[in-house]
Each structure stands twice: as structure tokens, then as C-alpha cells.
């Protein structure tokens, strides 16, 4: 193999890169992000590989976790508390909601720890820092895909007919990922400065789960509060999933409010992240 050793010379005038102090708003530098896309995929792949290599049950966790949660919910909320499930068998009713919820919770937890967990990278090499929280959100999709197969099985078992509504599912999946990333951007950047964020996250996800119609139906909420309920963006996502797959629930103003909230969280998270990014290496 010949080694050509091509050295590009950047002729007169224009430097390739100019480094200056950060003033005010940082540019998004999407071009830079694109140049480093391979790193994004490698980091994602690393997380997936390491996680499945280290755990005894490997991929079956992705199935067991929502299945067990579903079993518990079915007994407690379905059998004992007899929560209504819009005429859908309770297990699949809750499992459909557990999929996006667990994707969200897992990705959120992962990404809030991501920057601090990659201390070494952040303080020793340059690359767009956004890659780190993004890469920590993506592995959740693998778990999601695996449990989605289980869900498909359940849909067949409960003989729930598919409709064209399922075509909207990718949109709701995207919303789930976006909301995890949005909150993850906020928390990961805050965590660099305030290390007690990591104690907050488990409580936050726990409370958040009960504020989201995972174990119960959104129809329990009085109509006049419904729009307000949409302020929790995961409500919109879960409603969307049930609507697309089970035909229950409604896609109405609530979902739109959730979308607006997600967009707001995402943009503000991105802004905060980019603003503080310059100090990550100094502070972490």
C-alpha cells in the first residue's frame, strides 16, 4: 500500500480554522456535527455493544423489563385497582404505553449522565460536544425495536386490527426521542456544573411516569384539564402511540400542545447546551 502523505497547503490569506473567544450566542455548527457523524455512530455502537456484552441476559433485558413492568401493572392497576383501559385488554393497553415511556426514561437517564461520564473525552479531544448526548439517546432505540417485536406478537394475540394510523407511529417515536434528547441536553449540561443532578433524575423519572398515562388512561382526566395535561409532552406521545396502534385515545389539541412543548424544550436545551459548551472542558 502506498502512503501518499498528501499535505494540503492552505494558500494565502484564509485560515482553515479561526479560534476566538465565545461571545454571546454560539453558532449551531451543524456542518461540524455532520463531519463527525462517524464518531456519533461509533459511540452509539460502543454503548450498545458494551451494554449487551456486559449483561448476562444481554438483549433479553430489553424484553424482560417492559414485560415485567406490564405484568406488575396488570395485576395492580388492571386486576386490583380495576383502572379502565378504554375497552382494550389491560396488558396490551399498558405495554403500548410502556414502549415509548421506557425509551424516554432510559434515554433521559443515559443522556443526563453522558457528558460527565465522558469527562476524559471532553477534556482531552475536540469534537462537537452535542455528539455525546445524542449518542447516548440512540441506544434506547435498539431496546425499543426489540420490545416492539414483542408488541407485534401481542397485537396478533389480542387480534387488534392494524389501521393506516400506524403510519403516524414514526412521528410519535420521533417525538419520544426528541423529548428525551431535549431534557437530556438540559440535564447533561447542568450536570457538568451541578453534580447533584444525578440524584434528581431517578425521582424525576419516577414522578414523571405517574404524571404520564402509562398505567392508566388519559380519559380519566376531566375534559377541561385535558389541554393542560398536554404540557407534559410524554402525554402526547403516549396518547399518540395508543391512538396509532390500538385505536384508543384521541389525537387532538393535547398532542399539539405536547409537540409545542417538546419543540420549546428542545430549542431551549440546545441553546443552553451551546452556551455552556465552551466551558465544559474547563469545568468538567
Amino acid at each position: 500500500m502506498t502512503n501518499k502523505n498528501v499535505i494540503t497547503t492552505y494558500s494565502a490569506g484564509e485560515p482553515l480554522i479561526t479560534i476566538k473567544p465565545q461571545q454571546g450566542w454560539a453558532a449551531l455548527e451543524l456542518g461540524d456535527l455532520w463531519r463527525y457523524r462517524e464518531l456519533l455512530f461509533l459511540l452509539t455502537w460502543r454503548d450498545i455493544k458494551v451494554r449487551y456484552a456486559q449483561t448476562v441476559l444481554g438483549a433479553s433485558w430489553a424484553v424482560l423489563q417492559p414485560l415485567l413492568t406490564m405484568a406488575i401493572f396488570s395485576v395492580i392497576f388492571g386486576q386490583l385497582a380495576k383502572l379502565p383501559s378504554d375497552g382494550i385488554p389491560y396488558p396490551i393497553f399498558t405495554f403500548t404505553a410502556l414502549l415509548p415511556w421506557q425509551l424516554f426514561a432510559f434515554s433521559l437517564t443515559n443522556s443526563s449522565q453522558s457528558l460527565v461520564g465522558s469527562q476524559n473525552l471532553v477534556s482531552k479531544v475536540y469534537f462537537p460536544r452535542l455528539i455525546i448526548p445524542i449518542a447516548s439517546v440512540l441506544p434506547g432505540l435498539v431496546d425499543f425495536a426489540i420490545s416492539f417485536l414483542v408488541l407485534t406478537g401481542m397485537l396478533v394475540y389480542y387480534q387488534i386490527p392494524l389501521t393506516t394510523r400506524i403510519l403516524s407511529l414514526p412521528l410519535f417515536l420521533l417525538l419520544a426521542v426528541m423529548s428525551a434528547l431535549a431534557v437530556g441536553l438540559w440535564l447533561s449540561a447542568l450536570n457538568v456544573k451541578y453534580r447533584d443532578i444525578r440524584y434528581v433524575v431517578p425521582f424525576m423519572t419516577l414522578f414523571w411516569q405517574y404524571a404520564t398515562p402509562v398505567a392508566y388512561s388519559a380519559s380519566l382526566i376531566p375534559e377541561k384539564w385535558r389541554l393542560l395535561y398536554g404540557l407534559n409532552p410524554m402525554t402526547g406521545v403516549v396518547e399518540g402511540f395508543r391512538w396509532a396502534l390500538l385505536g384508543s385515545g384521541k389525537v387532538d389539541g393535547l398532542v399539539w400542545i405536547s409537540i409545542v412543548i417538546i419543540a420549546f424544550l428542545f430549542i431551549s436545551g440546545l441553546t443552553y447546551f451551546k452556551r455552556t459548551e465552551a466551558t465544559f472542558a474547563d469545568v468538567i
Binding site: T9, P15, I19, N120, V122, Y126, T279, A281
Partner: peptide, 25 residues
């Protein structure tokens, strides 16, 4: 480009690779 300067400016006429530590990552 790991950290930003407080003042001043740097022009780089070429791609930079840095090796501040072996085995990062």
C-alpha cells in the same frame, strides 16, 4: 479547540489533530 480562549485569536492553516493523552476514549 478543546477549550476556548478568553482573549485573542488563533488562525490555523490546516487540519489539527491533538494528542494530549494516549488512548483517550
Amino acid at each position: 479547540r478543546i477549550t476556548k480562549p478568553t482573549k485573542g485569536r488563533v488562525d490555523l492553516y490546516g487540519r489539527v489533530a491533538s494528542l494530549l493523552e494516549v488512548g483517550t476514549g
